[in-house]
């Protein structure tokens, strides 16, 4: 007698996958673009000015590091992004919490926030220069404007997603309004809030180049803009890739923090 065992196809919908297979596919996904890039750049089909080879981008990065204060550029950019995003988080958290908790606050602020968030952050640059000036504050302000309004709405949504049964169970145990907020709403929404912080941090980075349009003389975004002026395509590539890598590291740090702070979410039953 033969036994017939069904092995799910790799392409069955939401099918299972071994860890090893997963990383194999991930490696292919990551390496293919690099190989393509390397191949095209070295084939001679495209001029070096339009597409520098990985090697020359690497060389440019080292040169930048040795002679052009790459670490300084990275530090100031990280500072600007973190400051703009942090300021936005500090203000958006309580406002989002109030919107997600009290209907009058929601009615008062949510439509307004919805309206403002569609305004392009870039278009605020002239106003920011006028109001804040052209020093550090203006760069932070642009990143703040780019992230704050989205963040408020996401925080509000995180708070609203707390199951009613969790709130009502506390109320029928005699919890007061402030106890419900402190002992149920906040701890229950915390994991989602940390995810919101992670996602908005990503957006903050996308506003960096825009922010460094404003009378900057340092930073990764500024370096990219300056390289454009001198047609240093390899430096543009280097700057973009560096921003991507910093973003990736920060993202992983947030994920690590999530696992450390909320171990109960990552338990297997």
């Amino acid at each position: 007698m033969t036994t017939v065992t069904a092995r799910p196809s790799l392409w069955s919908i939401r099918g299972p996958m071994t860890q090893r297979r997963y990383w194999m596919f991930a490696a292919v996904g990551l390496l293919t673009p690099i190989l393509l890039w390397w191949g095209i750049a070295n084939s001679g089909w495209v001029e070096k000015v339009f597409m520098p080879a990985p090697g020359s981008v690497w060389a440019r990065t080292l040169l930048w590091l040795e002679e052009d204060n790459l670490l300084g550029d990275m530090a100031i950019s990280i500072y600007r992004v973190t400051a703009g995003w942090g300021l936005s988080a500090v203000i958006a958290m309580p406002i989002g919490l109030l919107i997600g908790t009290f209907r009058p606050v929601q009615a008062l602020l949510e439509p307004l926030t919805d309206f403002i968030r569609y305004m392009p952050a870039v278009a605020f640059i002239p106003l920011v220069m006028l109001w804040v000036g052209i020093d550090e504050g203006s760069k932070i302000a642009i990143i703040f404007i780019g992230t704050f309004f989205q963040m408020v709405l996401m925080v509000a949504e995180d708070v609203r997603r707390v199951p009613s049964a969790q709130i009502e169970a506390a109320q029928t145990l005699g919890a007061t309004r402030s106890e419900v907020i402190q002992l149920v709403l906040l701890p229950s929404a915390k994991p989602a809030l940390l995810d919101t912080m992670r996602v908005t941090m990503g957006w903050a980075w996308t506003y960096l180049v825009v922010a460094e349009l404003v009378a900057a003389n340092s930073g990764l975004g500024y370096a990219i803009l300056k390289a454009q002026r001198f047609l240093q395509t390899d430096k543009i590539f280097a700057g973009i890739i560096l921003i991507g890598l910093i973003g990736l590291v920060i993202d992983q740090l947030f994920r690590l923090a999530h696992r450390k702070a909320f171990p109960w979410m990552h338990l297997k039953s």
Partner: peptide, 30 residues
């Protein structure tokens, strides 16, 4: 609502960040 009338719901009412004994003890914090 008041502490004299406790309610048990169909689901999603436990606090996932508290372990079993802390869930049971939740009212002690109030």
């Amino acid at each position: 609502p008041g502490a004299d009338r406790a309610m048990v719901f169909q689901h999603y009412s436990l606090y996932p960040w508290l372990n079993v004994i802390d869930n049971i003890r939740f009212s002690r914090r109030l």
